Amino acid sequence: METDAEYIHQVLDFYRQNFTYTLAPPRLGQHTVDEFLFSTQQGFCEHFASSFTVLMRNVSVPARIVAGYQRGIWSEDKQYLSVRQKDAHVWVEVWFENQGWVRVDPTAAVASVRIEEGIDSALSESDRVQLNQSQNTFQWLNQLYSQWQQLDYRWQRWVLDYDANKQQSLLRDYLGKITPLNMALALFLPLLLIMLLLSLSSFQHWFAPVAIEVKLYRQLQKKLRTLGVVDQQGETIADYCRRASREHPHLKTQLHRVKQAFERALYGGGNEFDAVDTEIRNIQR
């Protein structure tokens, strides 16, 4: 009497000798399994798994279809496995006494490279072109999805799964043994570093070289403030001089020369700031 294992081997030989793996099989009618087994004999993993399960159950061998993913792309730098829709795969599990559920993949009998090297290796040239065209059509969506996967992975790893054990592990990596002293250093050293950087930034601001036009404008401010004319926020040099002229009409000519000297130095291309300094010094009460 034929055993279940012998029957399974015969079925796999039947697939191996008569069937072809393709992503573009002929359309099946109402009796899909019968037409696939005895007519078209072309298909992909779903066809092989479903028909194999039917053949097992017809002789009272318990069998079930299992769906999942096969292979994927390992990211060495990010340390995660990226599994995409094209990595989806379907196989079968059959029940053996004293063994339980045992995996049997009928697709491997027809296209072993599909299992060993991935779907691209198992396709014909026309199927591969069709698959690549489909992927290229939505290439920007694939790239966007890949970036979203990386973001989702980091969110899962560093936010949702960041429990107390991971916190302590991270601290041990940076501090070694976790002691009150090390914890205090970990808390206060960054604060000390931030304060130091802020202090350096302030000192840099104090001792940074001041542009000549800024020095001259401050000199003009000082001169006019002694006359009771304080500059206003957003006021240009020209407006400042005109307003001072209205309040002190006797200085109108001098302030006009200051304004012109500033404009020549700033926009005339000659950088004649000495003339600006002279005109400011000539302002008399």
Rank of each mutant, 00 (worst) to 15 (best):
Y267K: 15
F207D: 06
V276M: 00
A211L: 09
R27W: 04
E235G: 08
A108S: 10
R154K: 10
T107E: 05
D152P: 05
L220W: 01
Q42V: 09
Q42W: 01
Q254S: 15
P26Y: 05
I212N: 06
R257F: 15
G268I: 15
T253S: 12
D173C: 08
A164I: 07
V102H: 09
Y145N: 12
Q70F: 15
R157D: 15
R218P: 02
E97L: 05
A186N: 12
D161V: 08
Q149A: 11
G269T: 06
R57P: 06
P180S: 00
N271H: 13
I119K: 02
Q167M: 04
E93N: 02
S169G: 14
H250P: 05
Q260T: 15
S121W: 14
Q219M: 00
K259V: 09
V83A: 11
V54W: 06
R243G: 02
Q149L: 13
A261T: 07
V92K: 01
A111K: 07
D274Y: 00
R157M: 15
D34W: 11
A63V: 06
E93M: 02
Q149K: 08
D161I: 09
L191R: 02
V66K: 03
V33S: 05
Q139M: 14
L175H: 09
R243N: 01
A164M: 09
Q147F: 06
L141A: 13
Y69C: 10
L151F: 03
D163K: 07
M183C: 00
F138N: 04
L216Y: 01
L160I: 15
A109E: 03
L220A: 00
D277E: 15
E6R: 12
W158V: 10
E76D: 13
R225E: 12
F38A: 06
F96P: 02
P180I: 01
E116C: 06
L193Q: 04
V94D: 10
F36L: 05
H47C: 13
H47D: 13
K177T: 14
F273N: 03
D163F: 03
A108F: 14
F36S: 06
W74M: 14
Q79V: 09
T107W: 04
V94H: 08
L227R: 06
L37H: 11
Q99A: 08
Y80A: 01
L198T: 05
V214N: 10
T53D: 01
G29S: 06
Q150W: 04
W140L: 11
G269D: 04
Q139D: 12
P62G: 02
F273K: 06
P180Q: 01
G43F: 02
T32I: 09
A208C: 03
Q254H: 09
N142Y: 15
W206N: 07
P62L: 03
T226C: 12
Q254G: 08
Q10G: 03
